[in-house]
C-alpha cells in the first residue's frame, strides 16, 4: 500500500530527521554545531517526554529493527 504523496505541510518528524541530521531517536543525544566554536549536545529525552502519553509501554514493542544501511 502507498499513501500520502506530498502533504501540504511536511510532517514534523520527517523535517526533524533532516534538519537536525541525527534524527529524533528516543534514546538519542544529538550534536549540533553551533558557531565555529563549540558543539552543543542536547538530549531529546525531555522532548520525547513532552509528547509521550502516560502509558509506559515497552519501547521494544515499537522499535523496528535497523533498516538497511545506506549504500
Amino acid at each position: 500500500m502507498t499513501h500520502a504523496i506530498e502533504r501540504r505541510e511536511v510532517a514534523l518528524v520527517d523535517l526533524l530527521d533532516r534538519v537536525l541530521a541525527g534524527g529524533v531517536v528516543i534514546a538519542g543525544e544529538i550534536t549540533l554545531s553551533i558557531a565555529d566554536i563549540d558543539l552543543v549536545r542536547i538530549s531529546l529525552r525531555a522532548l520525547i517526554a513532552s509528547v509521550r502519553t502516560e502509558d509506559m509501554e515497552d519501547a521494544d514493542e515499537h522499535r523496528a529493527p535497523p533498516g538497511p544501511p545506506p549504500s
Binding site: A11, V13, G23, I48, V51, R52, P66
Partner: peptide, 13 residues
C-alpha cells in the same frame, strides 16, 4: 545516492 535515517520514535511519529 541514498541516506538512512533511524526509525522514528513511534509516539512522536
Amino acid at each position: 545516492a541514498t541516506a538512512a535515517h533511524p526509525p522514528q520514535d513511534a509516539r512522536l511519529a
